[in-house]
Computed example of a mutant assay.
Amino acid sequence: MTTPAATTVAGECDPRLAPVRDLLARKLAAGDEVGACLCVMSGDEVLVDLWGGVADAASGRAWERDTLANTYSLTKTMTALAVLMLVDRGLLDPDAPVARFWPEFAAAGKDEVLVRHVLGHTSGVAGWDRRMTIEDLYRRREAASLLAGQAPWWRPGDGSGYHALTFGTVLAEIVGRVTGRTLGEFVAAEIAGPLGADYRIGVTEPEPERIASMIAPPPTGFDYGSLPPDSILRRTLLNPAFAPSVTTDPDFLAAELGAANGQGNARSVALMQSIVTGGGTARGRRFLAPETVERIFEVQADGVDRVLGAPVRFGLGWALPGPSMPGVPDGRVCWWTGFGGSIVVSDLDRGITIGYVMNKMAPQLVGAPNPNDYVAAVYDCLDR
């Protein structure tokens, strides 16, 4: 039986967006959500900061204001933001070869792989040739070295193949080479810390009572194992595959997987990505020049992605509006999602940032129904 506590929505909501609060409450009551949080910002003003449900289904522990959850691939937007900050400082050039900053990466024909190819998922380095485990990824320098030694799986720049995990490994290595700091250290010191945002890539002091337990999605019915061994989709998504139950393990939390293990909530996600929405400025502090933010909208690929099997228009580090996420409107808008449904939308035209994080996972890698519903409801309210 669903308890009243499991369906209670707490937090603040601008009256104009009351239907968004009602939608979250309905989804909690119907079991479409177990625990979730939602944040909407207009510039620096928080219009919606809501949370509800339970963070741990087994114990019934409530989802609180400071609950954190694994955001899966939404983490990539934080990694991309870090890379853009280095671009802004003149320390990185998206049009330069990765090997300029990481010489070993030039091996096996990758001398022409550009930084923007990685940011746009077009580098051809979508996965590892060697069989990997999730524990192998924790040893980030060794995982990066393996990628440096292998050949690209297709001609760099020739369309996208989602870099599900290598996005974080390659870009974290570049950040480390340029700054002398790990990706997690850079994000903490240069983005999350100055903003007071509770988002971490690498939780070295875990607080179990704050971490939500992810709930695995229902099976899709598709047998990935039936794909040919040389399938790019299989080699990317199953190498390694890891269960959602791993995301509360101390070793996973402490690892810095810049593509998949950022821990945060809707408030911290929206706050950090409001830098993009604000043309480089958030809470009165300039993080990026406006012209650096505009580079996000340089289209890197526009077509059916080799891994996702869906049409995705990739800009520089984020996706741009397209049919795979119909709730996201057209315009100067960028977004990305995490496996299971978490999403962030930065709408520069309207000055709106939307963050959503949850623990009950949908099976879709892109285009899950809940985030689409929330995003559409926000725009419906604000466009009235």
Score class of each variant (00 low, 15 high):
T3L: 11
T7F: 05
A10P: 02
D14R: 00
L17H: 02
A25P: 07
A30S: 15
V34D: 09
C37R: 03
C39G: 09
D49T: 11
S59I: 02
A62G: 06
A62Q: 10
E64F: 00
R65N: 11
A69T: 13
N70T: 02
K76V: 10
R89C: 04
L92V: 14
A99N: 05
F101L: 13
P103Y: 10
F105S: 11
D111Q: 13
L114I: 09
R116A: 01
A126Q: 14
A126W: 05
M132S: 12
I134T: 14
E142V: 14
L147G: 11
L147K: 05
Q150H: 04
L165W: 00
F167A: 08
G176R: 15
L183W: 07
A188V: 05
L195V: 12
G196N: 08
A197Q: 00
D198M: 04
E207A: 01
E209A: 14
A212S: 02
S213R: 15
S226R: 10
P228Y: 04
L237E: 10
T248E: 11
D251P: 02
A260C: 08
G262K: 06
I275A: 12
T277N: 07
G280R: 04
R283Y: 02
G284Y: 03
L288C: 03
T292Y: 07
V312S: 10
R313N: 01
F314A: 09
L316W: 01
A319G: 11
S324T: 12
V328C: 05
G331W: 02
D349N: 07
T353S: 05
I354L: 11
A377V: 01
Y379I: 09
L382I: 15
